[in-house]
Design a binder for these strands. Structure first.
Lengths: 119, 119
DNA sequence: GAAATATTCAACTATATAGTTGAATATTTC
DNA sequence: GAAATATTCAACTATATAGTTGAATATTTC
């Protein structure tokens, strides 16, 4: 196998791994709720856990899943871990979706409206 | 609890269920490959399975996962099951992503370019 | 109607996941 | 330095998932 092709294959495999991790991280409503909460600003692990009817430990694990998918960043200061939304990583999904946009009818106009509105 | 609020809660729960199913369906590279393949046009179960190094049975199950997420539609004619991409359902993800667009820097221009290009 | 074809069903295995509880670690406060 | 606080680690349970093989079902072809 030519080197260039091998390199492409390797890159594709990494990309697939990333999509696996990101989609999997988002496939759980607790984790989606954590992201939503973080969209309002950084928060400590225990603050993130407070609203949920599950142990701090369980939430800590969910945060780790988000972190490994690159969707959450963690800043450790002393004993406090502060989590931040890393929304950039969602671009991978956006990019994956791009390909399929042309298969779901005419959303293009709505999209254009959205873009115009934001400008 | 007022009736209107109860109705909203129920709707939200269904929506979360749907996102769970859709994100989960996409969190597997085999299933993403199946969708990609179907984006080229409808195909029979055995045709879909052919390229994979796994049993027909395994692929049949993957198709069922996609079907239950609403991402694939099935048309049965005699013994042949023909699968079609149901990309509409991806709008749920698009919609979920919409909220986060403003958190990843300035893709808006790129998006605008994309929309202009397609028009 | 017997043989071939397309697909699912059933039963099973191995591994991953989401959750638990209790102990450990590290830091801060008194 | 003892107590309180923030978080993770370890060990465990229950359930879901991705895969397998072999049999069953339903349809089509000869």
């Amino acid at each position: 196998m030519p080197l260039a092709l091998a390199a492409t294959r390797a890159r594709d495999a990494i990309e697939e791994d990333e999509l696996d991790r990101i989609f999997h991280a988002l496939a759980d409503r607790t984790r989606r709720a954590l992201l939503r909460r973080l969209s309002g600003g950084p928060a400590r692990v225990s603050d993130l856990a407070a609203p949920f009817a599950m142990s701090l430990n369980a939430v800590s694990k969910h945060i780790k899943v988000l972190e490994q998918a690159g969707l959450v960043a963690r800043d450790v200061e002393g004993r406090v871990h502060t989590c931040t939304l890393a929304a950039d990583r969602l671009r991978h999904i956006e990019h994956w979706l791009d390909y399929y946009r042309r298969f779901w009818g005419d959303t293009l106009e709505a999209l254009a409206d959205y873009v115009e509105g934001e400008r």
